[in-house]
């Protein structure tokens, strides 16, 4: 699943339409979702973005293998209005702290630095994007998952030639709409990465069957998980057998598993 955090309703609207998201009822922030995407409208500023990120994490079940994408408009001194940019460095202007989202995939667009400010920036003193949310979003989302799955994508809405005063809901919607292709690619890429991570961290195939058959203490469950992972890494066959199923206790089943593993040769061959 990919979580979108956006500041404005106008940024959210094209995404809701494109991904077919439906509103969840109630709650402190508006949340929209389908099977693969959840979107929250945070309101403006770092604190709001951080709060909304935490809220969405709690609302969608506290799972680690989720990707996070902050989408929104940003200013840039030199880039053209409408440019879509992936952020490769985020700096909180107030604290001076920087974060570097790891770029582990083929980029669907240009990438750039971003400075998160508390007040709209009109002078664009540094060469980079300016927004008001990314630092709050990124620092919070990285508490919930690994940094490779957390990114910010910005569409340039203002520059030295066209000031923040010209921004309105209609042109914000249009700017995001024009970049839906890149957002789509990013979303798919992040979903695939998240799925890969989930695969590394998934339970071993036969765990549920064992847990249904016997009662394991918590420490026995850890042992069982480890042994089944070992089995899975070393054999494509099932470890389940009539002999195993007939064992009267969890403890005996674990001992059986240990014996089976000891008897399994470790093989490497050139194929």
């Amino acid at each position: 699943m990919v979580h979108f955090v956006v500041a404005l309703q106008a940024e959210a609207k094209p995404l809701m339409d494109h991904f077919g998201l439906r509103r969840r009822t109630g709650g402190a922030f508006p949340v929209f979702e389908n099977e693969h995407v959840a979107l929250i409208v945070s309101g403006m500023g770092k604190v709001a973005a951080a709060a909304a990120t935490g809220y969405l994490h709690a609302q969608t079940g506290n799972r680690a293998c989720r990707a996070w994408l902050n989408i929104g408009i940003a200013g840039h001194g030199r880039r053209a209005i409408g440019d879509g940019v992936l952020v490769h460095k985020i700096t909180d202007q107030i604290t001076g702290r920087s974060w570097y989202p790891p770029l582990t995939f083929e980029l669907p667009c240009a990438s750039d630095d971003l400075i998160s400010v508390d007040e709209p920036e009109t002078k664009y003193r540094k060469n980079g994007l300016y927004d008001m949310e990314a630092a709050g979003f990124y620092a919070t989302a990285c508490r919930f998952t690994t940094a490779e799955l957390v990114h910010c994508y910005k569409v340039v809405s203002d520059n030295l030639a066209s000031s923040t005063g010209d921004i309105n809901a209609r042109n914000v919607r249009a700017l995001i709409e024009k970049r839906l292709d890149a957002i789509d690619i990013l979303t798919q890429t992040l979903r695939a990465l998240a799925a890969r991570l989930a695969e590394f961290q998934s339970d071993p195939r036969e765990l549920a069957r064992f847990l249904k058959h016997w009662r394991f203490t918590v420490s026995e469950q850890h042992q069982l998980r480890r042994l089944l992972l070992h089995w899975q890494a070393r054999s494509a066959e099932t470890v389940w057998s009539d002999e195993l199923a007939a064992l009267p206790s969890a403890n005996k089943a674990l001992r059986h598993l240990n014996r089976e593993l000891d008897a399994l040769p470790i093989e490497y061959s050139c194929t």
Binding site: K89, S98, W99, P102, T146
Partner: peptide, 24 residues
């Protein structure tokens, strides 16, 4: 893509990183 940082530790040391994903 060239990205400037202050100290390499800012990029290399943060906790929330996954070696296996980065190795791609």
């Amino acid at each position: 893509v060239k990205i400037q940082c202050e100290r390499y530790g800012e990029v290399f040391n943060p906790k929330a990183q996954n070696f296996r994903l980065q190795k791609r």
